[in-house]
């Protein structure tokens, strides 16, 4: 027994450190929740601001988020620090933001999964559980085929797929492009198997570029290199309008279908963040989202700019929630 006393001591020390770390965090939470800042003229920011990206570095949310931060940095005196918190299509980050201190020093960018997570039951929170600051960009779902495939436009592809079973690659179940794929199959009334790859649309895009499947559904940003290098051909985008980087490709609506599915990125703060602080942040990030350099950067990559204020963001996602609920129900996902 004596032999193990060292082990027990060691584990106790480590456990205490762990408790201390978590304990400190939660104590501060309680204090700030009970007494939100009373100051009138806010001195904000007084220290660096954490900007959480709940996805892996190098992905779509990461690249766009970094472009926004670069533009916003000019408008704030303190540095904005980017922290990647990947996990469960952004759900881990959302959960952590829900528990984070509401002082404006912790922000999180997200995607349309902010409404789908609650609908699918991943986490019990949606956009009403946070303070939206702005919405700063969107990307439409889009469908592409390998370059050597015979289909020149979306009509030809759908005609073929009505008679023959096709295979469409896309992101993991619960992810926005998976939802888009199911909705597309339903809308077009085609016969298709869905081939799923975890971790965003990137792997599915490679699979299609190698000709292992008939088509891929992802964002133009994720397909950009393969489209430009001629391994993939874009057939249609599922957005409200054409994408600037591929302005010759028609929308799905133009082809006569009623489906618009995008991933739209809001910037969120924890619920109860003081109004004055939110105003400072709104001004800084609104100016950033209007920055011509930011707009050009994201357009060049195949993404689209969009600017909505806090109330508009709530309204937008209220509408989006209904749309998603309908799509998920119709395609039997909930």
């Amino acid at each position: 027994m004596r032999k193990y006393s060292h082990l027990i001591t060691y584990l106790l020390v480590i456990a205490l450190i762990g408790l201390l770390v978590t304990g400190c965090g939660s104590k501060e939470n309680v204090a700030s929740a009970n007494a939100p800042d009373k100051k009138k003229a806010v001195a904000f920011p007084e220290k660096p601001i954490n900007f959480w990206i709940p996805y892996d570095a190098g992905g779509g949310s990461d690249i766009i988020g970094r472009a926004l931060v670069e533009a916003a940095q000019k408008n704030l005196d303190k540095p904005i620090v980017i922290v990647n918190k990947p996990g469960t299509s952004g759900a881990v980050g959302l959960k952590e933001l829900y528990n984070a201190k509401n002082d404006g020093y912790t922000l999180l960018t997200n995607t349309t999964t902010i409404v789908t997570h609650k609908l699918l039951g991943t986490i019990p929170y949606n956009h009403h559980d946070y303070e939206p600051i702005i919405t700063f960009n969107y990307e439409p779902g889009s469908i592409a085929v390998p370059a050597n495939s015979p289909y020149k436009d979306i009509k030809e592809f759908i005609d073929y797929a009505k008679k023959n079973k096709v295979k469409i690659a896309t992101s993991a179940k619960g992810g926005i492009w998976n939802i888009a794929t199911q909705a597309f199959i339903k809308q077009a009334g085609i016969n298709a198997d869905v081939v799923v790859e975890g971790g965003g649309g990137a792997k599915a895009v490679v699979m299609a570029a190698g000709g292992h499947v008939d088509a891929v559904v992802a964002s133009p940003l994720e397909m950009f290199t393969q489209l430009k290098s001629g391994n993939l051909r874009l057939l249609s985008v599922f957005g409200p309008e054409r994408v600037d980087a591929f302005s010759n490709v028609p929308t799905f609506k133009e082809a006569g279908y009623d489906l618009s599915i995008t991933t739209t990125r809001p910037l969120l703060a924890p619920k109860g963040t003081p109004k004055e602080v939110l105003d400072v942040l709104y001004k800084a990030f609104k100016t950033a989202a209007e920055d011509p350099k930011y707009i050009k950067t994201i357009k060049d990559m195949g993404a689209m700019p969009l600017l909505l204020g806090p109330e508009e963001t709530i309204k937008f996602f209220d509408k989006e929630e209904k749309v998603m609920e309908k799509i998920l129900k119709e395609s039997g996902q909930i």
Binding site: D56, G58, G59, D62, I63, R66, A202, F224, T225, Q226
Partner: peptide
Amino acid sequence: ALGIPFAPPAALLLAGMRM
């Protein structure tokens, strides 16, 4: 040669090129 990143560091290098 293809613009395909297999690992997060590769994705960041690609992001650096794209920007």
